[in-house]
Design a protein around this nucleic acid. Sequence first.
DNA 1: GGTCCCATGTAACAAGTTACATGATTCC
DNA 2: GGAATCATGTAACTTGTTACATGGGACC
Lengths: 183, 183
Amino acid sequence: MPLKHAILGLLNYKEMTGYDIDRTLNSPIAFFWHAQTSQVYKELNALTKHNWVVSETVVQTDKPNKKLFSITEEGRYELKRWLGDTNMEELMKYKNPLLIKIFFSSNIELDEIMRLLTQYIKECETVIMNMNEELPQIPAYEEAIHQENESFYWGMTMTYGFMYYQNEIKWAKWCIDKLKEKI
Amino acid sequence: MPLKHAILGLLNYKEMTGYDIDRTLNSPIAFFWHAQTSQVYKELNALTKHNWVVSETVVQTDKPNKKLFSITEEGRYELKRWLGDTNMEELMKYKNPLLIKIFFSSNIELDEIMRLLTQYIKECETVIMNMNEELPQIPAYEEAIHQENESFYWGMTMTYGFMYYQNEIKWAKWCIDKLKEKI
DNA sequence: GGTCCCATGTAACAAGTTACATGATTCC
DNA sequence: GGAATCATGTAACTTGTTACATGGGACC
């Protein structure tokens, strides 16, 4: 249950509201996991039922009241258990809708396939650009959670992102060349 | 809805039973999509409700009776519409639980992280080996569906697979080197 | 007056997983 | 005698998506 554990990981840094978690998922974590706001609140309920988190209502006068969530000892234990679990089943369930399209694309015209791949390259380039813009913000994130040393691991996920999207672009360009040969 | 359309793609080759579709999903398509048997039968019901497929019961004496599904004109139209759709939203929803683990792995010991990455490399190598074994079967698949020319696109997805898993291994090895420097 | 930020959800639905259930034939 | 192949599902549950609902304060 990756989302549950991503939330536990965030709450392990510090107390947060559902709103905070939602915002954090949309920024440094977005490129390898994303969730709708409604799902975040649902998962927080589920985590509470597991006794992995507890919440406390904070009354505010200038802003709407909020529910501050914090991780419990059981939650911390569960987080560490999951992080160290070397069972690979969950990690090997690779799914890629683009490859389904390519697999069956004898059903559409060559120029439609090219349009698809070209558009995909453009999107990948945008993601790389966005990641480049986020890189300098890592120190600010670290400060926000009062932890140093995190950037070592965050950097690994960033490097993954660059390698992944560059590889996607390389493949898509190779496909386009192959298609051009066919014409 | 990639699974629905993967099934439509298969039925566009020829009539098939739920059992056939399940088997096909477990072989040439498995590395970029997978589904449980129960889900296949559920989706076949859903596709029937959409009028994208129709079924006919075939009575057999030596084997259990079966339900043969075939694609309708509406189904073919829907398949082509989906294949040519250049909206990228569905394709850009990247999710990777391993990166969540790496992101939060300051919570576990260095050797635990290394064990995880080493195991991951091993699994990726296994997938590459399996793909190498499947490569020579492409002509047989083509013959089974009475279509040539499909291998052009199937080859593209295969190439993707090799590039993807090689890239995964490259990254994981780079991470291990980084972790070793830290010790 | 309009948009953005803060803040929390519910309801309905679609997609995916896990466990269970059945049973004949064929091949080793 | 046992495993594999053929063949079809149901039930319960989890995960994820889409649409909707509310409302004050700050800033321009």
